[in-house]
């Protein structure tokens, strides 16, 4: 039986993550709490808006209402990586080799591994930012397109056009696919190695709500998503991704929406967080479900597996966070 160690941070949890073995919880007020027995928290921001795990370096990259980008280490040390004045930095992403991307309004910034800050101007507000698995290529989601830039080299971006507002973006782990979440309750995907432009588009629709959480399975064969009463999991193992295939629907409930998903680091298993605070794990192969956490005080905002896949950290809007030990 899984066992739960609850941890109340008394604030909206923006992100839960593991820094090495230490579970951390980034709160909207600006504190990053550590569940390491000390109960200590780092003062990272005056208003924390976004956080992204830099797994290679065991640090959590955070951005805030104070116009700063910080890196929080497992021991709680806060390092300021950038400060651009009084602007909300609502998007931040950790990239390969310590690169960091963040965006303010119509400007995206990439801080290269050597500390150089590159500025990228977009014609519309940058709503989402993601790094390709290799090569410092960054995807920027905005109105009517996702733009792919080579951050270090500069040059003309590749514009993946699709009408509508793209509010989030992710690369598949093999770098072959880019998928965006849209304002209009849909996902849109592009197959980057497609010959010709006709067969590169992938439309994934039918969601009753906006998709706010996306997670690729361990080997990149599946993409799990929130935004429905079930976790909607699209197959990406074929040459053409999910085109012409139906997604799996896991953990379907009649009385709550799926608001967060996180795929297990090794197995084809997805952790599913609901609008009432419940957390399940479901296996893709046979849809078998295990209850990990009963409903709580608020919707789940974030789910994160430990590197060994034995523990799951969860955060909620109401601050009733915790860690599930799968083996018990």
């Amino acid at each position: 039986m899984p066992s739960v160690a609850p941890f109340d941070i008394d604030d909206y949890c923006v992100a839960a993550a593991f820094l090495g073995d230490t579970p951390v919880f980034a709160a909207a007020g600006g504190l990053v709490h550590r569940l390491d027995g000390t109960g200590k928290a780092s003062e990272a921001h005056d208003g924390l808006l976004c956080a992204s795990l830099d797994a290679d370096n065991a640090r959590l990259i955070c951005s805030g209402e104070d116009g700063r980008v910080t890196a929080i280490a497992a021991d709680g040390t806060v390092e300021e990586l950038a400060s651009i004045g009084r602007k909300w930095i609502a998007q931040v992403a950790a990239g390969p080799r310590g690169a960091i991307g963040f965006a303010v309004g119509r400007t995206a910034y990439v801080r290269l591994p050597d500390g150089t800050l590159k500025e990228i101007a977009e014609e519309r507000t940058v709503e989402g930012i993601a790094f390709a698995p290799k090569g410092l290529r960054v995807a920027l989601a905005r109105y009517n397109a996702v733009a792919l830039h080579f951050a270090a080299a500069g040059g003309k971006p590749v514009e993946l056009e699709w009408k509508g507002a793209h509010t989030g973006v992710t690369f598949s782990p093999d770098g072959r696919f880019v998928v965006s979440a849209m304002q209009e309750n849909a996902l849109h995907g592009w197959k980057l190695d497609a010959k010709g432009s006709d067969n590169r588009h992938m439309r994934m629709t039918g969601y009753p709500a906006k998709v706010k959480s996306l997670s690729w399975s361990a080997k990149g064969k599946w993409l799990a998503s929130s935004g429905a009463p079930a976790a909607v999991v699209w197959p990406f193992s074929g040459k053409d991704g999910p085109m012409g295939k139906a997604p799996l629907e896991l953990g379907t409930r009649g009385d709550a929406q799926v608001v967060a998903v996180a795929c297990h680091p090794a197995e084809d298993v997805v952790a599913i967080g609901y609008s009432d605070g419940m957390v399940l794990a479901a296996r893709l192969a046979d849809k078998k479900e295990v209850l990990l956490r009963r409903p709580g005080k608020g919707p789940i905002t974030s789910l994160a597996w430990s590197a060994d896949g034995k523990r799951l950290a969860y955060g909620s809007e109401a601050g009733d966070c915790g860690v599930v030990d799968i083996a018990g």
């Binding site: 909206y12 909207a28 209402e65 609502a90 507000t125 109105y143």
Partner: peptide
């Protein structure tokens, strides 16, 4: 920054302010 998004592909009057969606969501977390 004012960011106008058309909602249902095509209709000129069905628009929202995308930036407000983001800012209001951020404000309402605290």
């Amino acid at each position: 920054d004012e960011e106008i998004y058309e909602m249902n592909n095509g209709c000129v009057c069905c628009t929202v302010r995308g930036d407000l969606v983001r800012v209001v969501e951020g404000l309402m977390r605290r």
